[in-house]
């Protein structure tokens, strides 16, 4: 009530302000694109750039959904997701190219590896109560080591070009992995917003003890979130490596920060102050627009680090401020 009267006293209807609060981020995104289009019209305002932005982010989006799964049940850090992506993206070509395993089996093995990591993370954190930062940080480094071992410290490549159809089949001008991302976001949005399971997740986040006394199987949900995070991260890895054809395990760490940046930007959209899948989707493509635009302005690769890092800090700061204001 208090916020409403405050808003009214500003002279604008509350509904308008609520709308602004929800969609400012989308406005910024469009503004960012316009700025690039004006500064570098020949490069940025092309269908090629459009395709690059919307066609390349599916692995990141899968990682972001993985992070969202754990964050939504109150587990704030799963630092192992990027390494799970790396492991899956390494395992698939190693099995398929070096060991001549059929491609479908290799895909399944990569996904199973992700699930296994999720099971181990979940068992240690949920059932043994080990500190999640330590478990997932250790797991992250351990998996990177395993991936490097499996490739003898090299990058792997040489996947059959036909395999790329899994990720790159053209649908209405965009690779099919873009639509996988949309489908995943819609499923997560449906489950979290409209189903009893989603409500249970919200209570596990808000107050575990209340949930437990109401018959919610708190630990099972937390465990499930880690397993699902493993599966989705591995799915991102599969999409990445099938699209590109090869992978360098050393590069997996670079996926961690953009993922968290996207998830936190997402808290400024749709339901301000809370983590939500559609906001995360927008955050992911906002970041891609920014980085690709800056690169096309002629800035070197270092700009992505500056941009991701800077945006993460700003996004978290803004979501903290929104949260505090909502708290009154």
């Amino acid at each position: 009530m208090a916020t409403e009267t405050k808003q009214l006293s500003l002279g604008a209807p509350a509904a308008v302000l609520r709308f602004t609060e929800r969609w400012t981020m989308v406005g910024l995104w469009i503004l960012l694109a316009l700025v690039f289009a004006v500064l570098e019209p020949s490069k940025f305002a092309t269908s090629g750039t459009f395709k690059t932005i919307f066609g390349s982010q599916a692995p990141l989006l899968f990682l972001a959904m993985a992070v969202l799964c754990t964050i939504m049940v109150g587990e704030f850090v799963d630092l192992s997701i990027a390494s799970v992506l790396g492991l899956a993206a390494t395992l698939l070509p190693v099995l398929a190219v070096q060991h001549h395993v059929p491609i479908a089996v290799a895909c399944l093995a990569a996904l199973a590896a992700g699930v296994l990591v999720g099971v181990v993370n979940g068992a240690l954190i949920v059932y043994l109560g080990v500190n999640p930062i330590v478990v997932t940080l250790g797991m992250s480094t351990l998996l990177l080591g395993l991936a490097l071992w499996s490739t003898d410290l090299n990058s792997v490549s040489g996947l059959d070009p036909h395999v790329s159809a899994i990720a790159l089949t053209d649908v209405f001008g965009l690779p099919i992995s873009f639509y996988y991302g949309i489908a995943l976001v819609l499923i997560v949005a449906y489950v979290t917003a409209l189903t009893p399971l989603g409500r249970h997740m919200r209570f596990v986040h808000a107050n575990r003890e209340v949930g437990r006394l109401a018959g919610v199987q708190v630990n099972r949900i937390r465990f499930g979130a880690f397993v699902l995070a493993g599966l989705l991260s591995a799915g991102g890895g599969v999409l990445l490596v099938t699209g590109v054809g090869g992978f360098d395990p050393n590069s997996s760490g670079t996926y961690l920060l953009p993922t968290y940046a996207a998830v936190f930007i997402g808290t400024a959209v749709v339901r301000p102050g809370s983590f939500n899948p559609i906001g995360t989707w927008i955050g992911t493509y906002f970041l891609a627009t920014g980085v690709i635009g800056l690169q096309e302005l002629g800035l070197a690769a270092w700009i992505s680090n500056v941009f991701y890092g800077g945006v993460l800090i700003v996004a978290v700061a803004v979501s903290t401020i929104i949260g505090r204001r909502r708290r009154g």
Binding site: T195, P196, L197, R199, A214, V216
Partner: peptide, 17 residues
Amino acid sequence: EDNIALSRLRRGGIRPL
């Protein structure tokens, strides 16, 4: 409302609420 809805949500299914 969210707090009250908890009493109805004994099973965490994925059919819509």
